[in-house]
């Protein structure tokens, strides 16, 4: 099955249960949006799938093209083809963007593959131009002193360079002005296609004006309470999150 499939996932942080029987499938080639108010577990889903050690998976399954990823290390999950664009990308002083992405690219090479620096830089510059990232950024330390928009563009740059099968974009639109949002959206639209499944985690409908989703899922209290087409995002925008709460209560009855 070419899809990112999550079945009845239960995740907690410490004693606190965050995801409750969460299920979702994102087929390769599609863009799905996951919406919901703060604190419903959207970022927890992203982090747990990426293998963050602070999140405990109590039960359920997560399959990448049929392969379970829940017992894998974070770096193994990434190399298997799941990319997470961070909501708050970390700063790494002293490590340049070029060396950082290079290490990630090299980690994906087979034993007999050679790393070709000229090709790497050609590709890197091409992607940077697309994302309107100044080429001098290659020698700057990862995310250090970057504006919010620069950090998010840098996340999309990494997505472009690493060619994953599935990408989770965690609130990539937060903190962006409209120009930066357009650049990021343009980058994502260029990358999307039959070989990439995308899960857009977002709080606002705004991003979905620029990246048109195939499906929209609305989340409340650790699970999806409603799924639909792109028009669901507009409905949600109009009715507000109180509507979701009502939906959730109705579902529970």
């Amino acid at each position: 099955m070419s899809q990112l499939e999550i079945k009845n996932l239960n995740v907690s942080i410490g004693e606190k249960s965050i995801l409750n029987d969460f299920s979702l499938a994102v087929p390769k080639g599609e863009v799905h949006a996951l919406m919901g108010p703060n604190g419903t577990g959207k970022s927890t889903l992203a982090k747990a799938l990426a293998g963050h050690p602070d999140y405990t998976v109590n039960s359920g399954e997560a399959l990448l093209d049929g392969q379970s990823i829940l017992d894998l290390e974070p770096d193994e999950i990434s190399r298997l083809g799941l990319f997470l664009a961070f909501q708050y990308p970390n700063e790494i002083p002293g490590v340049s963007i070029a060396n950082f992405i290079r290490a990630a690219v090299q980690a994906r090479l087979g034993e007999d593959d050679d790393f070709v620096a000229t090709e790497y830089y050609k590709n890197l510059y091409q992607q940077m131009d697309l994302l309107k990232i100044d080429r001098t950024f290659t020698s700057r330390s990862v995310n250090e002193g970057f504006s919010g928009g620069e950090k998010k563009r840098c996340e999309i740059l990494q997505l472009a360079m690493l060619n994953p099968s599935y990408a989770i974009l965690d609130e990539t639109d937060s903190g962006l002005d409209i120009d930066a949002l357009k650049v990021v959206a343009h980058g994502v639209n260029t990358l999307k296609g039959e070989n990439l499944g995308i899960l857009l985690i977002t709080h606002y409908q705004r991003l979905l004006d620029y990246i048109i989703p195939d499906k929209v899922h609305v989340m409340w209290d650790g699970r999806i309470v409603k799924s639909g087409g792109k028009e669901l995002a507009l409905e949600l925008e109009a009715k507000g999150y109180d509507w979701v709460k009502e939906l959730a209560t109705a579902n529970a009855c």
């Binding site: 990426a50 293998g51 963050h52 050690p53 290390e73 974070p74 770096d75 999950i77 990434s78 190399r79 997470l84 961070f86 990308p89 970390n90 700063e91 790494i92 490590v95 060396n99 950082f100 992405i101 290490a103 990630a104 980690a107 994906r108 990494q158 690493l162």
Partner: peptide, 19 residues
């Protein structure tokens, strides 16, 4: 920082070295 690097597929020993 370490998790961020691992999440990019960089192997743990290499991530430590970069840090």
């Amino acid at each position: 920082q370490l998790f961020y690097m691992l999440a990019r597929g960089i192997k743990p020993h290499k991530a430590r070295e970069l840090l």
